[in-house]
């Protein structure tokens, strides 16, 4: 068959997500943010939430998430996304509110807001992009930087005597009674992308069904900050990050919720 015979609308098996905007993303080549943005856009589209979703953008690399995913957005102050989401969600129970934060935003300056939104069981989706570094400000150590990792503020590698231990924030929020679903995912392979999307979808379904807080950590790369090619960054993540941040569900009390039981009205 010729290329022209294959490339026809009826043969299309993968499209650019409808709710991903035309804007070029400002992320560095190979950044995990782009993949997770696509998954969030696909899930919002597939669940018919285009007119109901409210995203809360963080401060950090994904500060401009609102330029890429086509739904309503509020840009939060550094670390405060869960507080904004709490109010937006309580005042607008007909909407579905999600936060999208990096590990510096969520697990350092915003730790209190994170923990309290989770323990109150706000009916929101929280997405954490954990690449163990502050990307936007130039690759400084974050609370989730693993031991030994070199960053701009731990140039000889993170040491416990100087910097303490990496914060496993998903394990922390899994202990809180307000969370219904806590999972740790990645997007470095096709299989991982499929699983991550299923996790994000489950989280949104939980929010629609008002089951409590769903927390999806995506262990991610920062090839610029780690000073590696995207391919090497994926390998380094597999070999080093996953030992500290093993993938899989950490908590799931939302089981049994089927997509078909949820009424999603399209406008």
């Amino acid at each position: 068959m010729t290329r022209e015979e294959i490339i026809r609308p009826e043969n299309k098996v993968y499209s650019r997500p409808r709710l991903i905007d035309d804007n070029y993303m400002h992320y560095c080549p190979g950044c995990s943010h782009g993949v997770v943005h696509k998954l969030v856009a696909e899930v919002i589209d597939e669940l018919g939430l285009e007119d109901k979703a409210i995203g809360i953008a963080p401060v950090g690399c994904s500060v401009f998430a609102y330029n890429y995913i086509d739904c309503d957005w509020i840009e939060a102050a550094h670390g405060r996304a869960p507080a904004l989401a709490t109010a937006a969600s309580r005042l607008n129970p007909q909407n579905v509110v999600f936060t999208y934060q990096g590990d510096g935003d969520l697990a350092a300056i915003g730790t209190a807001e994170t923990i309290h939104a989770c323990t109150r069981g706000e009916n929101i989706v929280m997405i954490l992009i954990n690449n163990g570094i502050y990307g936007m400000t130039g690759g400084q150590m974050s609370p989730c930087t693993i031991l030994g990792a070199k960053t701009a503020t731990s140039p000889y590698g993170r040491r416990t005597d100087l910097n303490g231990f990496p914060l496993k924030v998903s394990n922390v929020v899994a202990l809180l009674d307000g969370t219904c679903y806590v999972t740790r995912q990645a997007v470095h392979t096709v299989q991982a992308v499929r699983k991550a999307k299923a996790a994000i979808k489950k989280a949104f379904l939980n929010a629609i069904a008002k089951k409590g807080t769903s927390f999806v950590e995506v262990v991610s790369t920062c090839s610029s900050g780690w000073k590696m090619t995207p391919e090497k960054a994926n390998k380094w993540m597999e070999e080093n990050m996953f030992a500290n941040y093993p993938l899989g569900d950490i908590k799931d009390t939302s089981a049994g919720l089927e997509e078909k039981t949820v009424e999603v009205k399209k406008s």
Binding site: A76, T86, A112
Partner: peptide
């Protein structure tokens, strides 16, 4: 108070 004012912002 950090959370309250940011809840106000979100609302």
């Amino acid at each position: 108070e950090l959370a309250s004012i940011n809840m106000v912002y979100g609302g």
